[in-house]
Simulated scan of single mutants.
Amino acid sequence: MEKVFKEAEGTLSALENLFSNFSAKQVNEVPFAGSWTAGQLASHLIMANGGFVEVINGPTTETNKPADIMVESIKNDFLNFNVKFDSPEFIYPENKEYDRAELLAKLKQIRNHVAEVITTLDLTKTCTAFELPVYGFLTRLEAVYFIIYHTQRHTRQLKNIYSKLDTADFN
Rank of each mutant, 00 (worst) to 15 (best):
F22N: 08
F146M: 12
D86L: 11
P133H: 04
V114A: 12
V55H: 08
R111S: 14
T37S: 09
A105G: 10
P66E: 11
F22C: 09
G58Q: 09
E54Y: 10
R140W: 05
E94C: 07
L45M: 12
F19R: 02
T126H: 02
E7Q: 12
V117H: 03
A143T: 15
N76S: 15
K164F: 09
M70W: 00
K65Q: 11
F32P: 00
D166Y: 05
V71K: 03
M1N: 05
E16H: 07
V134P: 00
M70Y: 01
E89P: 01
K75D: 01
F78Q: 06
L12Q: 06
L107A: 09
A168R: 08
T37K: 00
F90E: 04
T63G: 04
I118S: 01
V30D: 02
E94Q: 12
L45R: 00
L132S: 05
T119W: 00
K25F: 15
A14G: 14
L104Q: 06
K75T: 14
V117P: 01
E142A: 12
K65H: 11
K75A: 11
A48F: 04
T11I: 06
Q109G: 12
E29H: 05
P59M: 15
S87A: 14
N82K: 14
L158P: 02
D86C: 00
W36R: 03
K84D: 14
S23R: 06
D122P: 03
Q152F: 10
